[in-house]
Design a protein around this nucleic acid. Structure first.
Lengths: 202, 202
DNA sequence: ATTTTCCTAAGACGATCGTCCTAGTCAAGG
DNA sequence: CCTTGACTAGGACGATCGTCTTAGGAAAAT
């Protein structure tokens, strides 16, 4: 009853390609036909793997995007001791990915979120879950690293990244993202001062 | 030859409705037919007023959105003395408009920016001009109000608003936007402290 | 060998899209 | 009167969309 390897491969390639195309061009501009062509997956299998249609594919792609971002966040806090360094690493990684993709990418969920926020309940819910998951994860990591007002800080970190990704993308420049990284690092540092901590990086 | 009143009315209604629909549902989901139906303008006049097609309409709608936001920013700095109050007023206004529109709206340019950033050069350029105009305007107003690092501050203000509008919209809650307002006010205040002479302590 | 199950090929289907076109209305200037 | 120009009604056009269907092929199970 477990899915075949080949089966999972076709399905996963569709989801992965969907995430990429939704990120680059959005939901509406991504058609099944162009997706299967880019993914190299059989066109006849679309509604076999996704009987719920394009909407179901989108939900799966959103869940993948959620996991990918969450993984990046966890890695950022694993490889860096202070909150400033972790957030800076995360933002820098996002900027590098954006530039490497010739400013076609950005947040994997931002475009589809704005497009479908009121058009599809299923997609809306998936996007809500994504942002909620990121927020909870960030609060947990921030608290674990001794941050004071983790709720406010997590919101600010996500807000700044989303906004900076948008502005950097349309400007085709890493500048807004880099400014955002310095901005958030400064805010985190200022917050920590009130806590009278150690604040020395290894 | 100046345009007729009736002529301008039809054209302007089309542009205004386009701005609203592009903001709510994006560029791809907004068709000419639904637009003229909503605007109450004649369907046969679409390519008379916009021979450049939907793309030309979009550019006009983006320019309108640019002007509308710029007007709000100017008003914010007219009605408030301090930078904190001005930005807080702006953010609060954005949050009220978002909630009043049942969280369908947000930034009038964000969705179309993400959708068309690589699909249409004309629309891309219009969006670039918009963000550049906002940035220049903000730097000018911030500098006029005695802010120190106006470039960084303007970037942070726009980044936070764009991100907060996205997150508030998908969460259907004013909370991220309100947190962003407090966040920016705090940052502006902290920046002003350093201008008084006290630098970093540690 | 035969049945069952999973997957794919290929396209039909109706709907909707952006665009364009032609005939016609209407107001103003001769 | 007639002419001219701006504007509109209404639909045709080809393309593309998401969805669904039918037939067939390839393993796996019996």
């Amino acid at each position: 009853m477990l899915t075949d390897v080949s089966d999972a491969t076709t399905r996963e390639r569709m989801i992965s390609t969907a995430m990429t195309l939704f990120r680059r061009e959005g939901y509406q501009a991504t058609s099944w036909r162009r997706l299967v062509e880019q993914a190299g997956t059989p066109w006849g299998s679309a509604y076999h793997h996704f009987p719920g249609g394009k909407e179901q594919l989108a939900v799966a792609a959103i869940e993948l995007g959620t996991a990918v971002v969450a993984k990046t966040v966890r890695r950022a806090f694993e490889r860096n001791e202070t909150v400033e360094d972790a957030v800076g690493w995360w933002y820098r990684k996002a900027g590098e990915a954006l530039a490497a993709d010739d400013y076609r990418g950005g947040c994997p969920l931002a475009t589809i979120t704005l497009e479908m926020a009121h058009a599809s309940p299923a997609i809306t819910e998936a996007c809500q879950d994504a942002f909620a998951a990121w927020h909870v994860l960030l609060v947990e990591l921030l608290t674990g690293h001794g941050a004071e007002n983790a709720e406010d800080l997590a919101t600010a970190i996500v807000n700044n990244l989303e906004g900076a990704l948008l502005v950097s993308r349309i400007r085709r420049s890493p500048d807004p993202l880099e400014r955002a990284a310095r901005h958030v690092a400064l805010v985190v540092g200022a917050t920590r001062q009130s806590r009278a901590g150690t604040g020395e990086r290894g």
